[in-house]
Design a protein around this nucleic acid. Structure first.
Lengths: 136, 136
DNA sequence: TCAAAAAATAATAATGATTACGATTTAAAT
DNA sequence: ATTTAAATCGTAATCATTATTATTTTTTGA
């Protein structure tokens, strides 16, 4: 996913193209890893000193809603990353030091033969945490 | 796991037996589900009106540290439940309405044949979210 | 091009979970 | 019974997240 594709998708839904929004998407395209809201804020303030958390969160949630970003909880705070649609549905190894990820193609839901009759499955999470080769 | 076993295990580590701690463990033994810190506080205040969050969190973390409780993040807040050691290592279906869980014996790590050479795996999470039969 | 309308932003305040701290109390060991 | 470390209470501080209101910016289309 590149910046233009993402913004194009937003435009189709009637969302406007703003410099801040553009920059946020750009950051995610550049950094292929999970990033916390506060780090997005820090980075974007280099270009737009005035941005507020309101702008950050509003856009992060919008981008997640539009399936441009994926989100997960790391160490008590939400982290976001560009959704990598090339692989279709998949999971991640997540480095607990740098936040970089490695796609895991295997999905445990395909292997579930537990009896979940009567249970309404809405969602699932499978994540492996540890140190990537660089941080190891 | 019952209350005595849990407190005994703490005693062996030199931790004291207090009425508050005892009551906290008791709540988890009685309720077989994930509970948020604030709900533990509310319940325990029926018996000990003065308890503070400090006491709650200190004990929740201690009990988790000692592997008496398990923890997960639900809707932005930490939830705790009694670790059910009867099943050995396992995962959970978690009801997003009431917090009750159903053990899932299957562990995806046993089925991982992705190449994680060079990656130091520390931990993993596999959780299925949805509605249990009662909340459905 | 220009004006209007909708959307987005900035600045700031509020909320809610979690953590921290100093004074006091309590458990348990001698 | 005394001592001492651990635990608690009461309260304040912190930190992520959400909300609010006034202002600014995009976009659209006359």
């Amino acid at each position: 996913m590149n910046v233009e594709t993402a913004l194009q998708r937003l435009k189709e839904k009637g969302y406007k193209r703003t410099k801040q929004r553009e920059r946020i998407v750009e950051i995610f395209v550049q950094q292929d890893q999970y990033i916390a809201a506060k780090d997005i804020l820090k980075t974007i303030q280099e270009d737009f000193p005035g941005v507020s958390y309101d702008t950050i969160y509003r856009n992060l949630y919008l981008l997640t809603e539009e399936e441009i970003l994926e989100t997960t909880e790391l160490g008590g705070e939400k982290h976001f990353r560009l959704g990598c649609e090339t692989h279709g549905h998949h999971h991640h190894f997540i480095c607990t030091t740098c936040g970089k990820t490695k796609p895991i193609e295997f999905c445990p839901m395909n292997s579930i033969n537990e009896n979940l009759k009567g249970y309404d499955v809405e969602n699932h999470k499978f994540e492996i945490y540890g140190k990537c080769p660089q941080c190891h």
